[in-house]
Design a protein around this nucleic acid. Structure first.
Lengths: 195, 195
DNA sequence: ACGTTTCCATACGGTTGAGTATGGTAAAGA
DNA sequence: TCTTTACCATACTCAACCGTATGGAAACGT
């Protein structure tokens, strides 16, 4: 799932979902403001005429695309973290998740650079709250009292956000390098005490 | 300093520096792509004609503005952190600096959302490296060995970047609240062990 | 006093990208 | 077979910007 649109190249007709999916690919690659409908249409092998049959305007496309992404991200969070019982492992998994689920992840990274956008802002807020709550719960299960768990969750999520930022500036260790593993070990040891 | 241009409203003529300064204000407020020269001119009470006398084009303005900001930021780093002898206090000061120097700080926050811009990218890289080196040095003085200090510096700076991101999403505790102080205490205690 | 800079206004041309108007074609029902 | 309906192409308009061309006015040197 992530190439529902790309692979169906022999489809005679396009669906709104195909547009949304390709829009997300474009967002992941070049950011939200690169979503120009003419270039997007070219990418899909059609022209504007097609687009405006499926959507009323550009904002409508963005709204649906972002909604689609949010749902996918939410389900993803449940699957990859909800299944892990040990809270420490759950947190470790959260950090390492940076490398997998490339598209979903790159979209988020791109969206962070458009936090001023009126549609992106509330979305990022919801996602951040949702994720931090997950982390906070894990810290609570580990044994921290509510206040401490809250602070630690915020710190942990900040670290994650900062890492994404450095990554986009090529200032973070490569995910497949040993340097990355060493750094991860350090981060986890610092943020997840005990054990 | 930050309103050299704004306050000189009775100046009969404008300087290139005035334009650079106002550009930075605009960047801080609405991001770098909001720097449209016609709207900027309107803001300064003149028209495009004036602008193109001082600068050859838009990029020239951005280049000078960002250079001005970088110098200011560098000097700022030296002053506020270089003067503090105790490395622990130096690190604490680095975090608390988030609240002061509003303009310089907001510019940085805005620039983070434009890391894809060909001019912003190398700038952010230089700034990040410079700041992380400061932090790394401090950790070295505290007593960590080189590798450990490097990791810890990256983690610390990531935390800082993440905090900025949350702040822009109104997801961080207000700087003037007690909640902020409590969180800061937690962050410092976690990232700066000992003492 | 007069020409020369310095600084700015006005008017124009060019590009990009959003959105509209309208018509064409293939497939699907009647 | 004939007509809808779904889907898309083509050809516009419109607005926002960048950049240029050119002329005007105050200030300054000499």
């Amino acid at each position: 799932m992530a190439q529902t649109a790309v692979k169906k190249k022999e489809r005679s007709t396009l669906s709104a979902g195909d547009w949304e999916q390709q829009a997300l690919v474009l967002i992941a690659e070049k950011g939200i403001r690169a979503v120009a409908i003419e270039s997007l249409a070219k990418r899909m092998g059609v022209t504007k005429g097609s687009f405006y049959w499926h959507f009323s305007n550009r904002d409508a496309l963005l709204e649906q695309s972002l909604l689609r992404w949010e749902k996918h991200d939410e389900a993803n969070l449940q699957m990859s973290l909800g299944a892990i019982s040990d809270p420490r492992d759950r947190l470790r998994s959260f950090f390492r998740r940076t490398g997998r689920e490339k598209l979903t992840h790159n979209v988020y990274s791109s969206l962070l650079t458009a936090a001023d956008h009126p549609m992106v802002e509330p979305l990022l807020e919801r996602v951040a709250v949702r994720r931090m709550r997950h982390i906070e719960t894990a810290f609570g299960e580990i044994g921290f009292d509510p206040g401490e768990a809250s602070h630690r969750a915020r710190l942990t999520y900040s670290t994650y956000l900062g890492f994404l930022q450095l990554q986009r500036q090529n200032q973070a260790p490569n995910l497949s390098s040993g340097e990355f593993e060493a750094y991860m070990t350090h981060v986890i040891a610092t943020l997840i005490p005990g054990k």
